[in-house]
Computed example of a mutant assay.
Amino acid sequence: MFEKKAWAVNGYLALICMLALLIGGIALIIQKNLIGTVLLITALILGTGIIVVQPNKAYALVFFGNYLGTIRKPGLWLSIPLASRKGISLKVRNFNSKTLKVNDIEGNPIEIAAVVVFRVVDTAKAIFDVEKYEQFVEIQSETALRHVATRYAYDNFEGNDISLRGNPEEVSDELMKELQQRLILAGVEVSETRLTHLAYATEIAGAMLQRQQASAILSARQIIVEGAVGLVQLAIERIEKEGVIDLDDERKASMVNNLLVSIVSERSIQPVVNTGTVYS
């Protein structure tokens, strides 16, 4: 089903007409005129078509099982008399998913949760195509979150591919696209999705934390070694260029060793000063 606009006229004019019919009908009934009864019944029937629409709310009209349309515009309206009304909110709403336990693409158990911002854009689909669209949104949101979580690793230690922890924006966009495809049937538009919780499951959290720490230490040491090699190379080239001292291969190797040890070492280095050789 698709939403369509229902027939409706200004409700204030309708109230004036109804009041006139009531007054005229009562006056004719007092005069024992049967037309007064007809006017009174007509006014009462028209009264069933009066509807008040609040801002950010809509009413779908159903007449003897047939969908007549939806009134969205706020105000007082007169629509089809004797038609039943199904109200639905058009406000933007948030849905916070439960913390789900799933396995990422590498099989590691993780905990993940997300918030979904949505609103109804097609009242006919939301009311007639699904049973309780709010529950439909909740179930489909958790299903989509599980599916997206299984596509990526929690963390990519090599830094080449998308990961749940390293690329939250990309993961959220992927979640929103998949969820929007699932919720088209319910006439719901997804405005935004964001991960609100992401962590390793309790049983592997300690081991994975040690792995992250080891990876961070390894990356830091690699940067230090690369910088140390550059400094040593620059120092030797500077000494040779300015002719401060002539270095043979043995002394050059010794200087390289000393410089690398002093730069790379995590502890402070105690220098050894060579004052010469004592001859007896």
Rank of each mutant, 00 (worst) to 15 (best):
L100F: 02
K91Y: 06
L100H: 06
S84N: 12
S89P: 04
K32H: 09
I35S: 09
T99V: 15
G87I: 03
Y67H: 02
G65I: 08
G69I: 13
S84C: 08
S79F: 11
I71D: 13
P81M: 01
T42S: 13
I45Y: 08
T42Q: 01
L68Q: 14
N94I: 04
Y67Q: 08
N33E: 14
A58Q: 04
N94T: 15
N96D: 15
F63K: 13
R93S: 12
G47C: 09
G69L: 09
A83F: 03
V38P: 00
I71W: 02
R93M: 13
G49A: 10
K91H: 11
G87V: 08
L82P: 02
L44Y: 13
G36A: 06
A43W: 04
R93D: 10
T37L: 10
I71R: 02
I88Y: 08
Q54L: 08
A43S: 13
V92M: 15
G49E: 10
A83C: 01
I51T: 05
Y59D: 05
I35R: 15
L90P: 07
P55W: 06
K98G: 03
I71Y: 01
Q54Y: 05
A58M: 04
G47M: 07
K57E: 14
K91N: 07
L34T: 08
S79C: 10
I35K: 05
V62Y: 14
T99I: 14
G87P: 11
F64T: 04
K32T: 13
N94Q: 11
A60C: 15
G87T: 11
F63E: 09
L90H: 05
N33P: 01
V53C: 03
T70I: 06
L40N: 00
L61Q: 08
L61D: 01
L40H: 03
L44N: 02
N94V: 05
I35V: 12
I45F: 14
I71P: 01
T42W: 04
I41V: 14
T48M: 03
G65F: 07
I51L: 08
I51M: 15
N33C: 02
F63P: 00
G75K: 07
R72W: 06
K98W: 01
K73G: 00
Y67L: 09
I80N: 10
K73W: 00
R93V: 00
N94G: 10
A60P: 00
L76C: 04
L61H: 11
F95E: 06
W77F: 13
G87Q: 10
L61S: 01
L46N: 05
